[in-house]
Amino acid sequence: MPMNTLASKAANAMITLVALSFIFLFLILPILVILQQGFSEGVVAWWQNISDEETLLALRLTLTVAAIAVPLNLLFGIMIAWTIAKFQFRGRELLLTLIDLPLAIPPIISGLMYVLLFGIYGWFGAFFNNYDVQIIYAVPGIILVTIFVTLPYVARELIPLLSKQGTEEELAAISLGASGLQTFWRVTLPNVKWGILHGIILCNARAMGEFGAVAVVSGHIRGETNTLPLHIEILYNEYNFVAAFAISSLFVSLATITLLLKGMSSEHHSKKH
């Protein structure tokens, strides 16, 4: 039936074309625009914009926040995933749902929750104020909300992996005389290491990119509590479009590297199975 195959070929080509132009229009084109704008005044201007003092301070803050939030969430994520995947207990389903809460709550609400908790009239506000400890409108507040919004990523990544593997290998290890910790380090963890890496990458991307929740608790102090995403908005609002897009291009390359790493990790991951 040559007519039929021809028609189906044409249909295939059509669908591919539509898909490709969709990807180009909604993915590639905006990224190209950012790069074009960022470099519109040449590489030297781009570099000057990147190495501006306030930008570097914002970058340092963003890296600091990620460097604290990601390891903590990694630790927490592994523990919670281990608990949920390997043990049966009452309230397990509830816990599983609760982990997703930060993904479901709009970021601005996450920020406001922390203002209500640590603001001067908040539950803990007076306590910290007595000791002159500034939580909200300072770096600790930014770190707290970042931890909150990035909490689910590692755990989410690990729970399905760990549950799929079941408990046979662990049971074997224990019956051969391994201690709980040994089993965890030697058996459980190596099995999911690429999943962990995957989770770290996602968690890190969100930690560095978070805007809404951080904007609420930041206090917008220049060179001090402005993270990189907030700084981009400031530059844009100050009609400094080139600088805003130069930094955005930095973010885009960061995201690209992240995705490449992620691709690598999933490749390894699939090879194992």
Binding site: G119, I120, Y121, Y137, I221, I234
Partner: peptide
């Protein structure tokens, strides 16, 4: 620090 005027007033009240 810069932001909307009312937002800033609110921030000072809650501890900025």
């Amino acid at each position: 620090s810069h932001s909307g005027s009312a937002t800033q007033a609110r921030a000072v009240i809650s501890g900025l």
